[in-house]
Amino acid sequence: MFTHTPLRLTALSLLAIGSLAYAFVAGFFGLEILAEIAILAILVIALDLVAGFGGMVSLCHGALLGVGAYAFTVAANAAGLSAFPAMVLAVALSAGLAFVIGAICARSIGIYFIMATLAFGQMAYSFVFQSPLFGGDDGLSGAPRPDLSAIGIDLTDSRAFAIYAIAMVALTYLVAAATLRSGLGRSLIGLHHNEKRLRALGLTVWRAKATAFAISGALAGLAGCLAAQHTQYISPGLLSWTVSGEALVVVILGGLGTLVGPIVGAVLFVVLKHEISALTPYWHAIVGMILIAVVMSRANGVFGFVEARMAARKPKPVLQKADADA
């Protein structure tokens, strides 16, 4: 059961206040990084929803993000939709695709699930890469940003865009948390623990899994829309499996199955990447070593580690569990 412990609420508040405060003082490049963090945060919340709580470790979330980005750009450029309808369309398409993938892969577990999602992700990548409709290797430019001038917000400004992206992270978090608290979320967590029992209780397993995957896919698609709006240029690289792998790294770095942890992971990952890559072109190796060290430490990521330490300091709140989400 997903609960908002005081620690999680504190961390969330700190993240929200910190990011907003930074958005108002940061220079240009700081705002770029903030938007990058926000987009990655949305993707990893989506991934944690299925991987952390449902045990569905996906290697196709990069592809779902990419599908969202391409659908948004094509809908806005070729079909001439304005930004928000195009976003709705893109999110729906990512969700639909994720539902199909989730339904087909529902029977696979463990490494087979990972490989099956990898296969679908690579299919999408190859399709986009080869199709001349999508500009192939050269990508597509000209994705528009939403026009909020009616309410006095100019999203072409980096500061406004960063704040808009942070707001989207908040929206994503609320959707993910609400999903986990709903009947579907409880089924998902139950499936992760004991699939046979839930099957015996009469749950249509594939449908629960596919629906959860669709919600996660919708969020990944939203991240894709934001990525397209942020850089205003998209390329097939967005769909590559290494994007999915990197997202998985971020989830682990932050803390699997904590929903808050992956956001912390996104902040750490992007900041580390920029700091280390400024020092050496061999920054991948350093990120790799940090990843190995985190996993070897057996802590559930940075946030999981803090949670475990806090929990060890006080007696287990066994009885509080039932009313924690009241």
């Binding site: 290797d137 050269d138 990508g139 430019s141 000209g142 850089t231 205003q232 240029y233 390329s235 690289g237």
Partner: peptide, 8 residues
């Protein structure tokens, strides 16, 4: 690909 991205 990078040139296409930074052109605008």
């Amino acid at each position: 690909g990078v040139l296409g991205a930074i052109r605008d």
